[in-house]
Computed example of a mutant assay.
Amino acid sequence: MTAQGGALRYQDLRRWPAVCGILLLTVALIVTSAWRTPALSRGWLVAFAVWSCVPVGSMVLLLIHSLTGGRWGEATTAILRPSAALTSVVAIVFIPILVSYGQLYPWAQAGSPVAQDVIKWYLNWPAYVSRALLALCGWWVLGTTFALGRGRPLLAGLGLAFYGATISLVAFDWYLSVEPRYVATAFPATLAIQQLAATLAFVAVFAAPSLDESVASDIGALLLATLLGVVYLEFMTYLVAWYGDLPDKAAWYLKRSSSAWAATIIVAFVFGAVLPFCILLLRKGRRSRYGLQSAGISVLLGSVLHFCWLIVPAFDHQVLVAAAAASAFVVLSVGSILVGRVLIPEAGHVRS
């Protein structure tokens, strides 16, 4: 009786972080959905873009590992599976964006500069919601299935194809359409690789103490590859825009060329690419616990600044938007950690 009672009390204590996390996220959702000020709604979009990288990226890494195998996936199960399970929270956290879409997207406002045929056939409320629900529900199912260890290689292959199709849709719908006259065909791929980079950085920070040198080197090499992918795609996008010399593309970059935003992207490049590249390029740096964690923290900081540079300049009152984004990101992160603290100890015992 005493042992059982002690176990019961322990389980009750373990549930409290999840309860607190759910309450925190619920209050944030209600406040953001009910108090629909432009700065708060826009800040929530920026925070969502940054925060959702790890749950969605964890789902993708689980799909990839199901097809390729490898010790890196087995050693990081306790991080990737609980994070992938949070794809359900990603779908719920998107609700304030649906509610306040009219404050976020010019195509949803009266007197929109977007061509009427584009609004009629693509950029309209029913189509936007349909594509968002398709992506979010699909990711929810895939993330939950593989988080529980029930996914198989066939489903993983189909899931990766589904992810490739949906990320191409939502990358434009959710983020690029805040400035709908600017189009960059490489942006979906950039977003997808940025999600993988942020997830691998997250794994590097929290899993490094438990990794042996061989697995740590594999994680470091994967992180290095994703960093090169992001830098390459961003540079080629800029190069193509510069050579094209088109007014809409020039206007997009001009908004981000002020001294403050120029400093932001330079700092993002240094912390998100140059510094971790120098650490991870050395075999000793990849194998070192502290080297891998330092590279991970640097990449996460660079990713946050990169997303701010991409999205915030599209809006007015940028200081307020950035402040709202920082507050929303803290709330989302703390709520996720509280929920994840319950899931993480159990993930290591799940076997596919």
Rank of each mutant, 00 (worst) to 15 (best):
A323Y: 04
L282F: 10
Q293M: 15
F271L: 15
L211C: 07
S333W: 14
W261H: 13
V274R: 00
A322D: 05
W252D: 08
D248G: 02
G220N: 01
V304F: 11
G302E: 00
Y232V: 07
V299E: 07
L281F: 15
A324Y: 02
F329S: 07
A263E: 01
Y238V: 05
A326G: 09
L305M: 14
G291K: 02
P247A: 13
R289K: 14
W242N: 07
R256D: 10
F269H: 02
V331M: 00
D218Y: 01
L320I: 01
I219H: 02
Y243S: 13
L281T: 06
R283A: 10
L275I: 15
A260G: 08
T226M: 15
A325P: 08
A322F: 05
Y238A: 12
F329T: 06
D218I: 01
G302V: 07
A268E: 02
L332A: 04
T264I: 14
V215T: 14
V270G: 05
I219V: 15
F329R: 00
T226A: 15
S327W: 03
Q318F: 11
S214G: 05
S327H: 07
L281K: 08
G244W: 12
Y243A: 11
V319D: 13
S298K: 03
V334R: 00
L211P: 04
D218L: 03
L254Q: 14
Y238L: 12
R289P: 00
T237L: 05
G285C: 04
Q318P: 06
H306R: 09
A216C: 02
G272H: 08
L211R: 02
L239D: 08
V230C: 10
F307T: 07
V299G: 03
G244Y: 10
Y243M: 12
L282A: 15
A295D: 01
E234S: 12
G244L: 11
K249T: 12
D248F: 07
A324V: 05
W261M: 11
K249R: 14
Q293G: 09
L222S: 06
G229M: 11
A268D: 05
A268Y: 03
A273S: 11
L280F: 11
V334M: 06
E234V: 06
S210G: 08
V230L: 04
G302R: 06
V330E: 02
E213Y: 00
E234W: 00
A314M: 08
R289M: 14
V267A: 15
V230H: 05
G272K: 09
R256E: 07
Y232H: 08
A241Q: 09
V334E: 00
A323W: 09
S259P: 01
Q318I: 01
S210H: 14
A325H: 04
D212G: 11
A241N: 15
Y232Q: 09
A268Q: 06
S214L: 06
L281W: 14
P247W: 02
V230I: 14
A273K: 01
L281N: 11
L281D: 06
L223M: 15
F269I: 01
I337F: 11
F269S: 13
S288M: 03
R287N: 07
Q318M: 09
I311D: 01
T237R: 13
A225K: 04
A262K: 08
G285F: 03
